[in-house]
Amino acid sequence: MPTSNPTLAEEHRLTFRGLHRRFGRLRVLQGISGEVTRGQILLVTGGNGSGKSTLLRCLAGLMRPQKGTIECVVDDVDLDVEERRRAVGFLSPAVELYGELSTAENLDFFARLRGLAPERGRQLLQSVGLPPDRAASVLSSGMTQRLRWCWALLHSPRILLLDEPLQNLDDAGARDVLGLLDAALENAAAVVANPGPLDLPRPHERLDLGDGFLVQELRAQTNEEPRSA
């Protein structure tokens, strides 16, 4: 693994154990565990409704799991959920930026929230080939996905949570963003969610969540598994 000297480098690690999350009767996550550390990728796969996005939202601190623990270590410091939320780089089809603002203005705004200089945003826009003055509302779906990547990487996060990272991207776009991912992984850990296997730039572990809610719902109807009350 091409990590720079792992004994000297600060540790970045995301560990989750026994995560449970259900929506009403629908049990989406049932005791999911995993771990990813610096330079590594954990690929989460599974059909539609298998809980990939729910898992990533829980890891990002956008949703509270009903059971289970999440441990996030960045630069050797154990983060609480508040800090974790601001630390992770989160990419998801459910994330949108402000349509009234241009691509650069959007990134500027988030850079100011995080106390960063605006140059970083311009650099990222350039590296994915996005014009800085285009309003976010008129971007095509593939360009929107590139903008999401810029937003997710803006604060050089040490923990990356990437939900369907290549959605809507053409070959050139996929190559660009995977290059960014590879560079970021020098100093970060990533959890990637995708319906199927992905051609990722680094060797990775795979966590399969199964078939999705149809099967789970059938199981719930027959009361096969123990209740998580």
């Binding site: 990002a60 601190g61 956008l62 939320r85 601001r86 992770v88 989160f90 998801s92 459910a94 994330v95 949108e96 930026l97 402000y98 349509g99 988030f110 929230l113 995080r114 937003w151 604060h155």
Partner: peptide, 16 residues
């Protein structure tokens, strides 16, 4: 409605 709430949640301090 425009799905910009999550980016804000992840970037801004609630008090600000």
């Amino acid at each position: 409605e425009t799905h910009t709430a999550d980016p804000l949640r992840l970037a801004a301090r609630p008090s600000c």
